[in-house]
Design a protein around this nucleic acid. Structure first.
Lengths: 211, 211
DNA sequence: ATTTGATATTGACCGTGGTCATTTTCTGAC
DNA sequence: GTCAGAAAATGACCACGGTCAATATCAAAT
């Protein structure tokens, strides 16, 4: 007789709360908020890579166990925070007008590139969670990548690009090149050329209209 | 007054041993071999993700500290083992004849795809180390990616592909799509379509000759 | 054979992420 | 108010990766 551990991540329960309103004590919301705030403080001081669960709970004034009752693990907390920021960026992108050249497209992506490369550790977390995610439940980062895909597809559909491939496929390609460029950025060998420049090179070839 | 910790990873010293032959005791080589053998055993039993440093040293009959005198950290050991296997595969690839179609190209890459997706954890390590690597010193996995790049460039140069872009750039693109396909493979959302099929789709568009 | 300085090994120890049985707090029914 | 059951919070505890001062071993010089 074996027992199976099923983890209930409260954040998930909250996210997918259905209309049959089960009791969510506002105590829970408060604690959660305290944890997130504390985490943001710690990150501001020590960077994402310097985040320690101990520090967070101390700052939030709760016990260690409480942290892990709210977030499945440290990654889940970071997913929330990083995914949140990326989500904001994509929301901004939606309000921009459709870029008509590769250079314009890339310059729209610059803030994102900056953020994703602000720390090696951040990039690692994103890689782990973005599509490549363990995705037992789809997290904020993966969600935001979905958003991004939609935006890019939308842009592709009404731009001067090649038409011999689905917009969605082309959009997926852009994401692939984005990650590639970031990876090379962190690589000792290739760190000469700036990311934007390299991304432009890839996309010129990828999106070039077939004449 | 601050002190700086400089780590001497013996593997590195051995790898880059210059002609001024400094003393390498064969004791060292033996211990290193024992550790690698033990690690391979443990992996065979528990998988890459189930590898525990304690198990390895116990099996190798050495102390914990010895492990970390030979490998900077657990990742470095995995880098060695995984990178070794990938290097073998690339050596095989070099002896194949140049593929003339996307389907042929992809089918050459199938063993690699299989290996890289054998465990989520393996893929994570590869991502962390491949170009995206912290690369203070370039490790076996990163090296093997360099190898792969050369092979792909070589193939591209003498295949029926588009000629409006450098072979190397196209090769880099193939690597990007390879990782993308693997990432999607591990994603809950997209795990329907097999990797090879999706890779073919990407590469048809990426390599298509511009007419 | 002995000394000496470099190299390799050891294992007690630490930091940190994560667990879980227990306790506290909440809420709704009476 | 109070009681019962559920939800939330607690903190001692564990697992595991990694460190480092101390020790043992080696090899070259005398």
């Amino acid at each position: 007789m074996t027992t199976v551990n099923i983890k209930f991540d409260r954040s998930q329960k909250l996210g997918y709360r259905c209309f049959m309103t089960k009791p969510v004590q506002q105590r829970t919301l408060k604690t959660r908020a305290k944890l997130l705030a504390a985490a943001r403080d710690v990150i501001a001081e020590h960077g994402f890579g310097g985040l320690r669960a101990d520090q967070v709970v101390k700052r939030a004034g709760v016990a260690k166990g409480t942290f892990f009752a709210h977030f499945a693990d440290k990654d889940a907390l970071l997913d929330e925070i990083i995914g949140g920021q990326m989500g904001d960026m994509f929301r901004d992108m939606q309000n921009r007008e459709v870029p008509k050249s590769v250079e314009a497209l890339v310059s729209e992506l610059v803030p994102l590139l900056r953020f994703m490369s602000c720390e090696r550790y951040v990039f690692d977390v994103i890689l782990r969670k973005s599509g490549a995610a363990a995705c037992d439940a789809i997290g904020p980062i993966a969600m935001s990548f979905g958003q991004q895909l939609e935006i890019l597809s939308h842009w592709i559909e009404r731009g001067p690009w090649r038409t011999d491939a689905d917009a969605e496929l082309l959009a997926e390609g852009i994401q692939a090149f984005l990650l590639q460029v970031l990876a090379l950025h962190f690589c000792a060998l290739h760190s000469g050329k700036p990311m934007e420049e390299r991304l432009v090179e890839y996309l010129l070839v990828w999106l070039k209209p077939v004449t």
